[in-house]
Design a protein around this nucleic acid. Structure first.
Lengths: 335, 335
DNA sequence: TTGTACGCGTTATCAG
DNA sequence: CTGATAACGCGTACAA
């Protein structure tokens, strides 16, 4: 009845039981080609008997690869990034990679640098960045660490390491939808400066207006939150130099409708509102929100494919555009 | 101009530069007590010069601890868990731990077992589980692996390893709010069977009704989604054997209001609705949603504290109850 | 096809 | 207070 806390079986225990050298076991593990079927069977058998699992730390030490992907995110609380992360994990695990996540408390260059260094310290084989502020990329570029990285939601100029749903096209489409409804004075409630997605969506908006020869109104800068949207709604209700608003995300759009409502403006009768993202409640708020749907999990999965290709030195997969699709609902009507 | 990809400096490089043994360097690293200040200074200096970082894999190999916490989640897409995860990461990183996340594709016993084994393989020092289905705990208990774990949102009977905001109290409070408004026939739109949170919230609801000597209506089982809420709203609009509904989460509550609305029922004039969670849009939908607020990030931080105490063999910290606070808004009015 | 010897970078043990 | 020396578990030469 001795309480012997048995240490986990090692590759040599397997070897001993199978009557071979630990080398042979290693070969079986990494299914090396030159190995006799019967020895392989013996080894596999011993592995099963002992319930042996290779020690990942030892392997990482000797190969100096960890089979781990790092996720650097700045906005885990939000719907889009969170959904992408789910996709990333799924794809990474399917490829045999672990996932180490690191959420950025702030997006100062120091914090970003520290975060990347931490991930490097952990020996991640590659990093996926979901911190769509412009400056993050500059930091990343500047460090030119040996660790390959891929980013979601990026600006142009980062081709090959970046991936995004076509937000410009999506923003353009939803703006054109408003134009098609007869709106002429269309305001944009934008995301914060420095955010790549904010810029892309604004660009799509501007392009649509230019193409249609419509006047542009200086956009209002928001912070992505519903609270800000409400505030903006109350302020904007005084102006009324527009008949429709394109909010850069659904949260702001919903807050905006709230602000309009509490100021006596009716949506969509007095003002049309559209959003972006198609969060789960978008189809259920009142009025139901016209918005642009994006497949965030797919984006995450693609990021993993791209990163793994980079890690393995393969040619990067060529993806078709990840379509943003317009969801027409009740919050925007013909003028 | 030789392109020598210099390998990272090791502890021996530091030792050589500082003119000491690699042992001394190791001591400095783990700030061992017996070490002369001047030698320590020399070593620190050499470390700085070489920009040396200890190899985590090597350390993990020899200590058989990885300084990594595993997060096992089943619902990363949802607001609550995602917020908790943010809290967990923050706290874990602050304590010098890395975080390895694993999202469960399904909650079958096999999937759960595989996930835990995977985390164990990665040598995580502890696991935090955010998969609040009852059966997960049974699997976890059954495996009785050596790895300590802690769970968020748990049932009773798992004291010491479990942590939760007091959902029963929260549910009770919001139900009492309805009762206080004069409602007598209060329906509960519950979460899925097997979900611990669903049970807790239902329990709070039942307790409040019992205490007030009110009749209970058999609860409707939902799946947490707004889509289901809408469906339920349309079905329930035909019944009208209630004047108020307590939905087990905000998503369902918002969908429910949608369903009522599209069936010609007005909220709150005809029916009062309350939710649970206080998701970011709750204060902005129409009508603004009365709900119960929970501090998810705090919950995550506490989970880390509890787990670390367990890992370190310290006494578990005693937390006061994490209060759920009622947010009174417009979706529920006096009968 | 298989086995031997060695090294990966660190901490632990025991001397001194 | 510091330094040798031995692990930790695995993969990669190279040899047989």
């Amino acid at each position: 009845m001795s309480a012997d806390r048995a240490r986990a079986p090692s590759i040599r225990d397997v070897a001993r039981l199978a009557g071979v050298s630990h080398q042979t076991v290693s070969r079986v593990l990494n299914d090396h080609h030159s190995i006799r079927p019967e020895t392989k069977a013996k080894v596999l058998d011993a592995i099963a008997v002992l319930d042996y699992r290779p020690n990942l730390a030892a392997r990482a030490l000797v190969t100096s690869r960890s089979n781990t992907l790092g996720i650097l995110s700045a906005t885990i609380g939000e719907f889009g990034p969170a959904s992408s992360i789910a996709g990333i994990e799924e794809a990474a695990r399917a490829e045999g990679y672990s996932v180490s996540t690191l959420n950025l408390p702030a997006t100062t260059p120091e914090a970003i640098g520290a975060a990347v260094r931490q991930l490097v310290r952990e020996h991640v084989d590659g990093i996926i960045v979901l911190a769509p502020q412009v400056r993050v990329f500059h930091v990343l570029r500047g460090m030119n660490s040996a660790v390959p990285f891929v980013t979601l939601q990026t600006a142009s100029g980062f081709d090959g390491v970046s991936l995004a749903a076509d937000q410009v096209a999506g923003a353009r489409r939803v703006t054109e939808h408003l134009i098609g409804l007869g709106h002429v004075d269309i305001l944009h409630l934008a995301g914060p400066q420095d955010w790549i997605e904010a810029e892309s969506r604004m660009r799509g908006y501007l392009e649509a207006l230019l193409d249609a020869d419509l006047p542009t109104i200086p956009p209002v800068r928001g912070d992505w939150t519903a609270d800000f949207g409400r505030f903006a709604g109350e302020e904007l209700a005084r102006r009324r130099d527009f008949t429709a608003v394109f909010a850069a995300n659904d949260l702001m759009a919903i807050g905006l409708m709230h602000g309009f409502r509490s100021s006596g403006l009716r949506v969509p009768e007095d003002v049309s509102v559209v959003g972006f993202d198609d969060i789960p409640v978008a189809a259920h708020v009142f009025p139901t929100l016209t918005t642009v749907h994006q497949d965030f999990p797919a984006l995450g999965r693609r990021a993993v494919q791209l990163l793994l290709a980079e890690i393995r030195g393969e040619a990067p997969p060529q993806f078709g555009p990840l379509e943003s699709v317009l969801r027409v609902r009740e919050s925007a009507i013909a003028r």
